[in-house]
Amino acid sequence: MKEDRLFFLALLPFGAIVVAVFIVFVSTLLYNSLPIFIHEGLMVYTSSTWRPVENNPEAEVYGLLAPMIGTLEVSFLAIIISLPPGLSLAIMIEEYLPTGLKSLMETIIEVMAGLPTVLYGMWASLFFADYLKSDLMIPLHEILWFIPIFGCMPESPYTVFTAGVILGIMIMPYMVGLILDGIRQIPKKIREACYSLGMTKYETVRILLRLMRPVIIASVLLSLGRAAGETIAVSLTIGNTYNIPECLFTPGYTISSLIADQFGNSGFYVYMASALYAGGLFLLLLGVITSSTGLYLMRRWKTSV
């Protein structure tokens, strides 16, 4: 057994490297966020003023509230856009399609899932955004102007709404994968029981869906976490303007697109970089909460089936 022991020890350094990277990252993130906390305290998360000032560090004020709200708005919109097609695809693949088509669809979904995000973003930015504005946003505004989120006239095609739609398209394949994973855990005998009682496919699927509710919630949570962290496609479609988006048709920021857009500038100012790191901290926390809750729900459901 000694040879085994030596082997284990030889593998340890590699594991240690991974652990070290992790520790260094988290501590650097915390360390770099510190200055803004000293400068502003928790106001950095509650204020919506963004005032970079050159040569006068005391006067600099950075509030992340607007991009935080932007992140949440864009992510929720993405979920709303992606859930119906995602759920439908999962149901279609598992319950309706024959084997050949099933694997074809799964391949298509896999292609979508791995497609570089910059391609989604550039397509949206250079092509789709204009159609979105003229064929969806303007009509929505004209019909539903009395609802606050649709209340403003879309000027530019690059808005919170645009980013949400693109993000929704992007995370849909991820969500499909999660839901499919859940559907496949349901034992065959439940479906068999339904069909032998003479139920239609619709009625059977309804029962399966009710059974799967925790899976759907978990998938939504995990997709939410993924959506919140996405940078490139959002940055290319959201307009990168600092304001609290009360209406979806205005440009805005998410935390990640703010970082992408402003980090290059931050060298001119004293506290800006630190504020951006604090934003990163928020993202990390959001990701940790959504993914651990999501994974927990998934695991608990899997053991209960």
Binding site: S88, M105, I108, M112, L115, M172, Y202, E203
Partner: peptide
């Protein structure tokens, strides 16, 4: 019941196709 079953199937397929349509739109545009 028959009608609901058919309607559901159509809805599922329509939404599903809407979900994968962007892939083909993107590939063709590019």
């Amino acid at each position: 019941r028959y009608f609901k079953d058919k309607l559901f199937k159509i809805m599922v397929f329509v939404f599903a196709m809407a979900g994968v349509a962007p892939l083909f739109a993107i590939i063709s545009a590019i």
